[in-house]
């Protein structure tokens, strides 16, 4: 272990920019970005499932409010949503005295809220499309078996809709990772924030941003690989049979 750290320090010795300190900032940024993206995706996914079901409801008074929500969040830039949630809330009188303030005070949670609401809106629409595309034969068969609406949703429609939504959802995950780069405008030290810090301190745009671009590429590769694995598992029935 000692050998490795000595070797590592040697490697960094001749380098003015990538010192252990700045690498520490990049590491901190990697942790923040991963946390932020992962948590917002999980929360967004949990929100999106019921919203997608409501969105595909026949009743206007159920589907319209959800449509309004997805329309607003897909129709405005994420940066604006982040600004409104981070800087906007402080103009609510007396917000500092409420129980919400310890949460909203930190930059992390407003960013998490903005990202969650944004990805939930996109994911809702992805799932809605998949639900709508359920072949009518499957639904008619389920009815013929006497399944109730909710049982049919659980056993027939959702499982096949999730499978159909998988490739599009994989794209949304990658999109979210890249969109998270704006978190640094609200002082969060995410990967891009670390790169901007190094850039401003050493006036070295190429080194700072190329390094961080390489990290994003690695993250994207991991996501792609994970979704390819999932697709292989879950969409196995769609592949042609090879003997």
């Amino acid at each position: 272990m000692l050998d490795i750290s000595a070797w590592f320090n040697d490697l960094l010795a001749d380098n003015l920019i990538f010192t252990p300190t700045t690498l520490g900032y990049y590491w901190e940024g990697l942790v923040t970005t991963t946390q932020l993206v992962f948590l917002s995706l999980v929360a967004g996914l949990i929100l999106a499932v019921p919203l997608a079901i409501m969105r595909s409801s026949k009743h206007k008074w159920i589907s319209l409010p959800v449509y309004f929500y997805t329309y607003v969040f897909r129709g405005t830039p994420l940066l604006i949503q982040l600004y409104i949630i981070y800087y906007g809330v402080v103009f609510i009188d007396g917000i500092q005295e409420t129980f919400l303030w310890p949460v909203l005070r930190e930059a992390f949670y407003p960013a998490l809220i903005a990202f969650t609401l944004n990805t939930a809106a996109y994911t809702t629409e992805i799932f809605r499309g998949a639900i709508k595309a359920t072949s009518k034969g499957e639904i008619e068969a389920a009815r013929a078996y006497g399944m109730s609406q909710s049982l049919m949703m659980r056993r027939i429609i959702l499982p096949s809709a999730f499978r159909r939504a998988l490739p599009a959802y994989g794209n949304e995950v990658i999109f979210m990772l890249h969109a998270s780069a704006i978190a640094s405008v609200v002082t969060l030290m995410d990967l891009t924030g670390a790169a901007r810090f190094v850039y401003a301190r050493f006036y070295a745009p190429f080194d700072a941003f190329l390094f961080v671009a390489a990290i994003y590429l690695c993250l994207t590769f991991a996501i792609l690989y994970f979704f390819r694995f999932l697709e292989k598992k879950l969409l196995a029935h769609l592949r042609p049979q090879n003997s």
């Binding site: 800087y87 402080v90 500092q96 005070r105 930059a107 405008v185 002082t187 030290m189 924030g193 810090f197």
Partner: peptide
Amino acid sequence: ISRYSTADDMVLDMEAQR
């Protein structure tokens, strides 16, 4: 340490008690 792009954003967050 919170780092801001502009001095204005910083003053806004100071007023917000962040």
